[in-house]
């Protein structure tokens, strides 16, 4: 049984301009100790997908219109609020993109971490303090006793993200959802934070769902990749298979647009590949493939009928008429 099994998830946002179909029929599953990377451009629905797992999207205007999210045999979408709160932060945790804004500015680091221990493990103040200092040490924050009393604004971005990791991993969750955890950080700090996340999740047997738009990070960390475009999964497979043999023109475009050693920018030349056009507005009603308007290989059928998911081999599937 997979740890997490998302089946046919659809999420809409009912706005004044109409219904935005942010996620459309997304299915994937994650095994214990597995690391899956979800990639795609901004606005492709990756954040909404993972936030739906803990029902953290604002409802209304958001609405999970369809689907099932099974975690450890329980449908998270059917749980009552109390049971769901019991899972949030203890069995499934999240790390967000902006360490600058995801910590509450008016409470100390210690207060914010120990809250998790108090809520889920019913610890008293003193034991929670001990546990907090312990986890601060684990995320390599120097002089944790002192940091316990400090406020978020006194810490650097990297340090704050370490604090977020401490909060997320405090209860040794089975699943960690990391929503672009390194995007807002400096290059050198990115590697440290990623390493820390991987090392601790390995220690705690935690599976990771890693959202990123950085294919390099996926290649380094994940075993499986999900490529999303306009609210749909368009290609999924093992990291090696996707990087060696990408099928979908969008995936090919994404991999081509990665900067590589040896490629040099010169005046008048443009060695970095780019995908023409922009992501379509999600409140349009497109009957065919959503990528067709930007695709250089699109055929007549692409604009009329949406392609179905096609398995190329046992763990690599693609939704594209070129392969149907």
């Amino acid at each position: 049984m997979p740890l997490l099994d998302v089946k046919n998830l659809s999420v809409n946002f009912n706005t004044l301009e109409g219904t935005v179909r942010a996620v459309q029929g997304v299915s994937f599953s994650l095994k214990k100790r597995e690391i899956i990377g979800i990639v795609g451009e901004s606005g492709c629905g990756k954040s909404v997908t993972v936030r739906s797992i803990l029902r953290l999207i604002p409802m209304p205007p958001g609405e999970i219109s369809e689907g099932r999210i099974m975690f450890n045999g329980e449908n998270l979408l059917a749980l009552d609020q109390k049971r769901l709160r019991g899972i949030r932060g203890s069995n499934i945790s999240m790390i967000f993109q902006e360490p600058m804004t995801s910590l509450n500015p008016v409470f100390t680091i210690g207060n914010q971490i120990s809250e998790t221990f108090k809520v889920h493990q019913k610890m008293n103040k003193q034991r929670a303090r001990k546990a907090t200092i312990n986890i601060l040490e684990k995320v390599s924050i120097p002089s944790p006793e002192k940091r316990f009393e400090e406020y978020p604004h006194q810490l650097s971005g990297g340090m704050r993200q370490r604090v977020m990791i401490a909060i997320a991993l405090a209860c040794q969750p089975k699943l960690l959802i990391a929503d672009e955890p390194t995007t807002a950080l400096d290059m050198t700090v990115q590697a440290q934070i990623l390493d820390l996340m991987l090392q601790l999740s390995d220690q705690f047997d935690t599976s990771i769902l890693l959202i990123t738009h950085d294919l390099g990070i996926v290649a380094q960390t994940a075993s499986k990749v999900i490529v999303m475009y306009a609210g749909k999964i368009i290609e999924t497979g093992s990291v090696s298979s996707i990087f060696k043999h990408p099928f979908h023109p969008y995936t090919i475009g994404l991999i081509k647009s990665l900067p590589r050693m040896g490629l040099r920018s010169q005046y008048g030349k443009k060695p970095l590949h780019e995908i023409p056009g922009i992501v379509p507005s999600m409140n349009e009603n497109i009957s065919g493939c959503w990528f067709a308007p930007r695709c250089d290989q699109s055929m007549d059928i692409c604009r009329k009928v949406a392609p179905l998911q096609k398995y190329i081999d046992s763990d690599h599937s693609v939704s594209c008429w070129l392969f149907n």
């Binding site: 803990l54 932060g89 995801s102 509450n104 998790t116």
Partner: peptide, 12 residues
């Protein structure tokens, strides 16, 4: 704000 999402994600 993000920190309210964090608070909810913590299970508060």
């Amino acid at each position: 704000t993000d920190y309210i999402t964090t608070a909810r994600a913590k299970g508060l």
